[in-house]
Nucleic acid binder design. Structure first.
Lengths: 340, 340
DNA sequence: CCTCTATCGTGAAACGTTTAGCTCTATATT
DNA sequence: AATATAGAGCTAAACGTTTCACGATAGAGG
């Protein structure tokens, strides 16, 4: 039983060649055919594998990239990450996934951790990252790709969806079915996506020349509980909206729970358009209409952009990839008045 | 702008002390008070941080543990992982999370990857891991903790839930409400949890002296689609069950979708008890009754056991921690005949 | 036969740490 | 006063690679 891993030195000894030659071969250099065979044999016999730690020490490359997200329990994010991971693997990169639990301090800490691990690149869903850290990384030639959210005032590659028009389209759909009093359950306004989604809500009202009733614009925190509370708030208004647009998955969950617990019928008594999770949409009765984001695509774009940057290709920097969302229609929107 | 990170050598130069002294101080050795101050100052001035790669090369410790799971898009797993990660962080450990996409080959590959990264310990949800790999890891003094599933015939610490009695209790609940024809949608029988859950179903039938109708025992693959198909199968039987026990989250989703799409009323026309996701349970109308696993606890137990092993404490090896599940009752089970 | 070039191989330094073993000094013990 | 002990610091080797600069060999071209 080989307890101590064999090193390049052992391979050298076994073959009678020098360490330098073995290293050259491993890294794709020219070696006589005869010696290639010999080295292969030795590697097999000794079960040799490169010590990545030692290699990393010399090369400052680790063939590892870091992914830093606010929560592991968010299926929207983990879907993206899963795709990223699978693409990078094809190019020989491994992935370290970190979760900063919506905690800005932890986010900064873990960013440092990744840099300390000498990852070759970082994919980040930012919340309160210290901009200097990103600059520092880029200066050290560690590319950083932001996903889902951008940070104003900083040049950085970013892959996200067109949240503004996602919201625009969702609310527009309600308008075309005759709704005029449309409530919105927003996210926290220090989060980029939440700002954009609110902007879309506002713009579509402008374009349709419908005045916004401020009482219909409520701010949640992207968690289930607030979705529930704010839907309850709407239901208790003297003049409630006829439809509500909920701007993320968790709050959509909460909103549905609120409706269910009060036995409000969807869409007869309240129309609803939600966000992000097609499985959720299908399991609710009647099926929910929702905005879906192209998670797979976000992952692919981010991974490919990162690969490009790691190759040293800085063209088009900073890139801003803005993908389009879709609406999957269920039966959660009542047709009050169709113009079509 | 410091582009090249400063090393221990720079700190030595700055302070006039030797490298060895700096290293000693960093690692908690004795140094004169006066020099401590000096070194601290130097570290701050030079923004020095230990190069973990170099340290790892010397010590063969990386203060990093690996987590290997079949899917990142499984909230049950990511909840556990999130907890594990947060506990280990408190002890200075960082976590590399890998996803093997339900692919046994990838699982083995990534296990190797983690070993290559010289993680100090591994937490694994096994599917088709090569047992030799686990033995090899243990021999190299890298503790391995299995979670959710054990592997027969191999000595290894494991943290899981009592799946057998989880199923037993779920079906028993149906029995106490008067159901006698209870269908089960099982998982793939090469997965440990699926076997155990089926065993529970069988045992409770024995204990209640109810004969099992083989037509009521169907095997899915733990994915949404098969939950849907198998529920449809039950609904189309000439003599359908009055209640169905679905043995994981995804298939529960599918089963609910099938019921909804056929407009079957829960629980009047079909009773249901599902698995694993309390949010799902609350969003379905009427609320679903489900078996819930103690994700947080699993995470805690696994993390603490791993910490213990990494300290070298081998007491009680191999440990088998078998946690209990709960049933959260909704309104998805019709009372046919109550004996209470 | 000489020179040039290309190919293959090597020795040795370097990456940034840790650590064994040593020296030196100051204090405590007898 | 002599000796033991403990504390603080240092030198140098080691971890397992990569890579630079060079040497050796052999065939080609003149």
């Amino acid at each position: 039983m080989v307890l101590i891993a064999s090193t390049i030195k052992d391979v050298a000894k076994y073959t009678g060649l020098s360490i330098a030659t073995i290293s050259k071969y491993i890294n794709g250099g020219n070696v006589r055919e005869e010696n290639k065979k010999l080295i292969d044999e030795a590697i097999k016999a000794l079960d040799f594998r490169v010590n990545e730690i030692a290699r990393g020490l010399k090369t400052n490359k680790t063939a590892t990239i870091g992914v830093l997200i606010p929560s592991l329990e968010n299926i929207f994010l983990t879907s993206i990450v899963s795709r990223v991971e699978s693409i990078l693997l094809q190019y020989g990169y491994s992935t370290i996934i970190c979760d900063y639990r919506q905690n800005k301090e932890l986010e900064n800490q873990k960013f440092d951790f990744l840099m300390n691990k000498f990852v070759d690149g970082i994919i980040l869903v930012p919340l309160g990252i210290n901009e200097d850290k990103i600059k520092m990384a880029l200066e050290k030639d560690v590319p950083v790709i932001l996903i889902d959210r951008s940070i104003k005032g900083i040049d950085c590659d970013v892959v996200l969806v067109d949240n503004l028009n996602a919201a625009y389209n969702a609310v527009e759909l309600l308008f075309t079915k005759g709704h005029r009093r449309v409530g919105i359950i927003c996210g926290p306004q220090d989060i980029y996506t939440a700002q954009e989604r609110l902007k879309g809500y506002i713009r579509v009202h402008e374009d349709y020349q419908i005045k916004i009733d401020d009482a219909l614009v409520k701010y949640g925190d992207y968690e289930i509980q607030s979705g529930m509370e704010l839907m309850n708030y709407f239901l208790e208004m003297e003049n409630p909206p006829t439809a509500v647009f909920v701007t993320n998955y968790e709050m959509t969950l909460g909103a549905v729970m609120a409706l269910n617990s009060r036995n409000i019928s969807i869409p007869n008594e309240m129309s609803l358009i939600g966000f992000d999770n097609i499985q959720l949409a299908n399991v609710v009765k009647p099926k929910l209409s929702i905005v879906v984001q192209p998670m797979q695509q976000i992952g692919e774009f981010a991974a490919n952009l990162l690969l490009k940057r790691m190759k040293g290709d800085k063209s088009g920097y900073p890139a801003m990839l803005r993908l389009k969302t879709d609406i999957v229609e269920g039966e959660s929107i009542k047709v009050i008045n169709s113009f079509i």
